[in-house]
Amino acid sequence: MMNNNRIMRPVREYFKQNWGILLALFGMCLVFTIFGNNFLTQTNIVNLLRTCATNCYLAIGVQLAIILAGIDLTGGALAALSGVICVMTFENAGLPMWAGIVAGILIGLIVGFINGAVVTYTEIHPFVVTLAMQSICRGTAYLLANGSPVTTTNRSFSSFGTGMLGPIPLPVVYMTIFLIFDFFLLNKTRTGRHIYAVGGNETAARFSGININKIKILVWTISGAMAGFCGVVLAARMSSGQPATGEGYETDAIAAAVLGGTSFFGGTGTVGGLIIGVLIIGVISNGLNLMHVNSYWQFVLKGIIIIVAVYADRMKQKRQNAAK
């Protein structure tokens, strides 16, 4: 009985909270299975998950920033910078391959830390700070790479992004590990609750003795590190650090987070919701490709989805306010 409760209650809650987007996901899959070619094949599912993975790295960070009632727009550009630095470290500077991977993640971490520190201590809106940082990262990536991709022939590096663990691509394995970490962070640690508290009501959190500055800096640092990791995986997959890569990735990450029920008002958002959000974004790209729809339509569609999802959240808030 006890066991039943501990397992079944969260499951029921999950469906109750997310039935809308689950239904949407299911419906999309159904449509693509019927009208697309080879949607439900093992190769395609593996492909689908692989694209989901890179978006998911960014989305984890972006969701944390949104829970803090902030935003992180640095993701795509930072991933490009990290990829360039990663490859240059072992191709140009002659250091070992692993040092490149560390350097890529490290640059993400540092940029994220700077984002967090600037947001915290200058009280400039995170939108402005991270938008500016996006530009700085993109520019730096082009400058370092001299405008063209930095290529590598290092096999073991490329396997970091293209390798498989049995039938599962490595990026999907990384994604799973990060999601588990994210879940524990948000649900099983003090820091997680503090993140929700600071996002829900910063002043009340301060009065509760929470170190707000620490939480803010931590969240943007995590987000930066995730972008750094994303950049390394992308570079490994393409066997090159490309300064132009990752354009518009932050849009996908934001879309995934808001689809998953993360509110721009701050203080709410779950890992379970995020997973569905990431899957929906992945399924849309993948399915439309299979149906040979012009890929530019995807941009249009994702934009519409963001507005609809945020509007749905707005309505939910209104209903809650009316119920008071």
């Binding site: 609750r193 508290a197 002043t203």
Partner: peptide, 26 residues
């Protein structure tokens, strides 16, 4: 503004300053 997180539960609010008493090592 200073006291409560209105969109969180009673439980969340009451335990906010004393999380270390029951959350440890994940």
């Amino acid at each position: 503004t200073e006291g409560l997180l209105l969109n969180n539960t009673i439980a969340f609010n009451i335990t906010l300053p004393i999380l270390s008493r029951f959350i440890n090592h994940l």
